[in-house]
Simulated scan of single mutants.
Amino acid sequence: MAEAYDEWLAGRRGIRSVTLQGYTHDLAAVRRFLSGKKLQQLTKADGDALVDWMLTQGRSSRKRSRPGSLAGRVAEQIARHPEGISAANLAAAYPGEDVHTCLAGLL
Rank of each mutant, 00 (worst) to 15 (best):
T56A: 14
Q40D: 10
L20I: 08
A45V: 00
E83G: 15
Q77A: 14
R62F: 04
G68N: 11
P67G: 05
K63E: 09
G96K: 06
K44P: 01
L27W: 02
L20M: 07
L39K: 04
E76T: 15
L20H: 08
V51K: 03
S69V: 15
A28S: 11
P82I: 10
D48N: 05
D46I: 06
R32A: 15
G58V: 04
Q41P: 00
A87M: 11
R64V: 14
A92S: 13
P67M: 07
Y23H: 11
S17I: 10
L50D: 02
L50W: 00
K63S: 15
V30P: 04
G96M: 07
A71D: 08
G22N: 08
S60K: 05
G58W: 00
A79P: 03
G36A: 09
L55W: 03
T56F: 00
A49E: 13
H100Q: 10
K38C: 09
G84T: 10
G22Y: 00
S17T: 11
V74A: 02
G58T: 03
G58D: 09
G22S: 08
A45R: 02
D48T: 02
L27T: 06
S86R: 07
Q77C: 09
L39G: 06
G36K: 08
A28F: 00
R73G: 05
S65M: 11
F33D: 11
R31Q: 13
T101I: 03
D48G: 01
A45M: 00
Q40W: 00
Q77K: 11
V30C: 06
W53D: 11
G22M: 02
A75H: 08
H81M: 07
R66H: 02
Y94Q: 08
K38P: 01
A29C: 05
R73M: 07
S65D: 14
L34K: 00
E83R: 12
Q40F: 02
E97P: 06
L50S: 03
V51H: 01
Y23M: 10
R80H: 05
G58I: 03
Q77V: 05
Q41S: 15
A49C: 08
H81L: 13
A29E: 05
G84W: 02
H100T: 10
K44Q: 09
N89V: 15
D48L: 07
E97W: 01
L55H: 06
S69G: 14
D46Q: 05
P82H: 05
S69M: 09
I85L: 14
T56R: 04
S61A: 13
R73Y: 01
A28V: 03
G47P: 06
A88Q: 13
H25K: 07
G47Y: 00
L39Q: 10
E76Q: 15
E97F: 04
S65A: 15
I85A: 12
A71T: 03
L55E: 13
E97S: 13
G47S: 09
A91E: 15
V51Y: 01
H100K: 10
L42F: 01
L70H: 01
S60D: 07
P67Y: 07
